[in-house]
């Protein structure tokens, strides 16, 4: 129990730090934020009105406390451009980006584990070499370019998946999954390459350990040794990498959403930056950072399942 408690404490601490950081990023803009938004030609009256609306006319400490209080009650202020609460805007775009990211993680896991096993079973043989070439390729091609290629092949030439038509999650989950499959795959491919390499190395290391010889000496076959013994022990570094990748997937989705015209965080954040919609930028950055922290917390919890020794620490 102590372990969960400590982990929860560090989680809370990180969230507080992220709150302070997102707050300060918004405030370190030189001069008056209202002036920065409206431009030098704005009248004094306009600037005062916006300052009041933003709350930047109040002392810094008060603003920070407000930001904390707002974050605690999910009230992240109001978007300047859309005149809607930032939390509502996030909620409306969340399903798209979330599906995209989760689908990518699912694709990463579904492909990298069999490929890693195939490579590690007979190192240096044909399957290993093929996987090695594929992962090199996956690492070298950026995901937005991969996205365009996938779109051309599966969307326009083969007509397998709908192109640039996003169907809401609430309307038809199956179609929603299908319409995000290509961008999710594009995001997943470089990550699969990374995970495969980690898993291959880790699995080869495990297969050389003494306990594998013990397992064979009691009469277990190759498959039972691999799946029953070595695989689980080799997943620890893999879980770490997948946790780190979740953040990259969220960041990568900003670009890939543009390629596939998906109404997710990407388009929202880009328009928010373009319009100097600071409350919206601040809210989005906070939300993305918080999701990454939560995912890594979950990864940490999975370590305990993967490595019983961690219980002691």
């Amino acid at each position: 129990m102590n372990y969960y408690f400590r982990r929860l404490f560090t989680l809370a601490l990180t969230v507080v730090l992220v709150l302070i950081l997102t707050f300060s990023v918004f405030r370190v803009i030189p001069g008056d934020p209202a002036l920065a938004i409206l431009g030098v030609e704005a009248s004094q009256e306009q600037i005062e009105m916006l300052s009041e609306k933003l709350g930047t006319d109040r002392p810094m400490a008060v603003q920070l406390l407000e930001w904390f209080r707002g974050a605690a009650t999910l009230d992240l202020g109001t978007s300047l451009r859309y005149s809607e609460p930032v939390s509502d805007l996030i909620a409306s775009r969340l399903p798209v980006t979330l599906i995209l990211a989760l689908e990518s993680v699912a694709i990463v896991i579904a492909f990298s584990i069999p490929l890693g096993i195939a490579a590690a079973r007979r190192p240096g043989k044909a399957a290993d070499l093929a996987v090695s070439v594929l992962t090199q390729l996956g690492l070298a091609v950026p995901s937005f370019w991969m996205g365009i290629l996938l779109l051309l092949l599966f969307g326009l030439t083969l007509n397998w998946v709908p192109v640039s038509t996003y169907v809401g999650w609430d309307e038809n989950p199956w179609l929603a999954l299908r319409s995000t499959f290509l961008p999710a795959a594009a995001l997943a491919i470089p990550q699969i390459a990374i995970v495969v390499r980690y898993l291959r190395t880790s699995l080869l290391e495990q297969l050389n350990l003494d306990y594998v010889r013990t397992a064979r000496s009691k009469g277990l076959g190759d498959r039972a040794v691999l799946y029953g013994h070595a695989l689980r022990n080799s997943l620890l570094p893999v879980a770490t990498v997948i946790g780190i990748q979740f953040g990259e997937l969220l960041a990568g989705s900003l670009v890939i959403e543009q390629v596939f015209s998906l109404p997710g965080f990407g388009s929202l954040l880009i328009s928010a930056i373009g319009n100097r919609d600071y409350p919206l930028v601040q809210g989005l950055v906070l939300f993305i950072a918080a999701s990454v922290i939560v995912v890594n917390f979950l990864v940490d919890l999975s370590y305990r399942w993967l490595d019983p020794k961690i219980k002691l620490r």
Binding site: S217, K218, G219, D307, P308
Partner: peptide
Amino acid sequence: QRIRGKEIAMIFQDPMTSLNPGM
């Protein structure tokens, strides 16, 4: 595989590393 562990079994040198740490 049918003989290993059933007819002929083996004990190894280092008990610290010869058991699976995750089971």
